[in-house]
Write a protein that binds this DNA or RNA. Structure first.
Lengths: 337, 337
DNA sequence: GCAGTTTTGGCAAACGATTGCTGTAAATAA
DNA sequence: TTATTTACAGCAATCGTTTGCCAAAACTGC
């Protein structure tokens, strides 16, 4: 490894001077600076960020703690976050918790040990208290996508309630009255929020929700298919379905087709997330697009804000709710009868 | 921050001793060790890996340089790699190059500056020469998924030629003779290899390839749809299609349906990649599954091998070819006529 | 009891940078 | 000419660890 010392020797100056030309932190006379630059060039010198970090107390690295980056939604989020980080000169360390609190804790500890400048955190569950103590005075954190009440950190959330509300309002506007809902895991706030939106929309419209309309799914294709099969046994069956994510919507599509019915002819379906494949299935899926880009931007910006405000008055942590956007495609139809 | 010095003071010992109990690097008498452990406990001490890394010349961190982790294939790969890393005690820094050589270079430099212990690298293009100089003596590298001839590092590849071969052999075995191929970008080795396999299979079977059977796609839904539309205009049209990835296969599915024909009734389709959605579309897609798990495992293992062999004889870099696996679902049928 | 061995634990020098303090030479002012 | 300011660079301490070397204490065997 070529160090600052080598550069100094080669340029015939002190390491102090080399350091100062690297960081432009004080004036160095023209000729000397040129010598230094040339020496750096010739030796292919690259400052050791470990040493620098140790001294400066910062690493230009943030941790991204995420349930599973192979899930398309999180993949997209991770991608955008990494992008934002890159643009601001930060590297990101990727951590997949698998929604496992033990891994989550292990990762956080590792990140702290690595002296990351900040952590972007999608919590696995509700037991955020132990993490709070762990994290608190140590490092800035921004919570993303899910609530973490104990953490008193800024939170950036997608507005699932309003998303569900809008989706169902859309179906209502098409004249549907018997609207079912395929939910996700009861433990996930995303799923719960969307369900709440569903209920609110029906309530607004003065429609009494029938509990049989609400089928539990699991956010996976299978679950959506199964749930839809159940819904088709109802009498009368719903004319429209709000699936709490696209993957289940695709499962539902499948079930409808298998039953010899068509979408949107017999049943309208709206999904949630706008994953890439949503536009490719037949019929192309009408769905609620998550504000991923905006979420990533906000999250990174807030985190960098905290990092740079280190040791400041510490404003009350913000809570940012970002709206989902309805993407109309071909899976919904005005009701005929 | 609580440092080793604080722990030493609290335990009433030297920092040397603390260090040794942390690393179990020499025997420390029972009582003293207990005091140290307790002090660490009470203070919530966590070793600063920057300082440690600086001293030890290692960081337990590897860089993952990948075109785009929001692409499902790379997402899966990234996930598995991160997993493997975690299991071996390594963190991974995520770098999305977007297939942009400039970003690629910037990232590699950043990783070198960060003193990563190794780099897992999916190269963007063919100009790997400048990178070779950059990387070479500095850090172990394993190249993944694409060739990088200048790099003299181990390479872990999916065997696209054999994959294409198998896919088409399967169609041949079902009795098909007029088999088309929807290719990907001509610049990607993956696409080229699969096409080669396609040609080989037909040759093996003594079938002359008609150039009109080979339709250029772009690895996206649109491209697949378009290509399929073209194929359907042929007279006679092919009875089977090998799409060089699943996304295009889905596009092709769409085109067939739009033309009023059915899969696999009129046309059999086999895709490539086995992305998650492949099993969810209708009909479920028969496809070649990439050996992602194995690739991730091999890549990480080889990288760790290099890392630990640092300064050794340096065996000739290996070239690992991993076979794709045929996943039979519902999109192919024995030819009737 | 004593030399020789084994345990045990501390001192201080690294690792590669940054930065407060200080010192010299040149430029300016008087 | 001398005093004062300014511009420029270097010394050495520091960040938090690890680790080679040494010294004291505790054993051992005779």
């Amino acid at each position: 490894m070529v160090t600052i010392k080598d550069v100094a020797r080669r340029a015939g100056v002190s390491i102090t001077t080399v350091s100062h030309v690297i960081n432009q932190t004080r004036t160095v006379s023209g000729p000397l600076r040129d010598q230094v630059l040339q020496a750096m060039q010739e030796l292919g010198y690259r400052p050791n960020t470990l040493a620098r970090g140790l001294r400066r107390g910062e690493t230009s690295t943030i941790g991204l703690v995420i349930p599973d980056n192979s899930n398309p939604y999180f993949a997209e989020l991770a991608r955008l976050i990494e992008d934002q980080g890159f643009n601001h000169g930060y590297s990101v360390i990727l951590c997949n918790t698998d929604d496992n609190p033990v891994k989550e804790r292990t990762y956080i500890e590792a990140l702290l040990a690595k002296q990351v400048d900040g952590i972007l955190f999608i919590p696995t569950g509700k037991q955020t208290q132990p993490l709070a103590e762990l994290i608190h005075p140590q490092v800035p954190v921004v919570v993303l996508d899910r609530e973490a009440p104990d953490l008193d950190a800024p939170v950036v959330l997608a507005d699932n309630v309003n998303g569900g509300l809008e989706a169902v309002r859309y179906l209502l506007a098409l004249g549907h009255r018997r609207i079912a809902c395929i939910t996700g895991p009861k433990t996930l706030a995303a799923s719960l929020g969307r369900l709440t939106g569903y209920r609110q929309a029906l309530e607004e419209a003065g429609i009494a929700v029938q509990e049989a309309w609400i089928q539990p799914g699991n956010f996976r294709v299978q679950g959506g298919e199964e749930a839809m099969r159940q819904l088709l046994t109802l009498d009368p069956p719903p004319t429209a379905v709000f699936a709490c994510n696209d993957v289940m919507a695709i499962g539902a599509l499948r079930a409808v087709r298998t039953a010899g019915l068509t979408v949107p002819g017999d049943i309208s379906i709206v999904g949630y997330d706008d994953i890439e494949i949503a536009s490719a299935v037949i019929p192309a899926l009408t769905t609620m697009a998550q504000p991923v880009t905006e979420m990533a931007r906000q999250a990174v910006e807030q985190l960098l804000g905290l990092i740079h405000a280190e040791g400041q008055p510490a404003a009350r942590p913000e809570r940012t709710l970002l709206p989902a956007r309805l993407v109309v495609r071909d899976s919904c139809q005005r009701i005929s009868s």
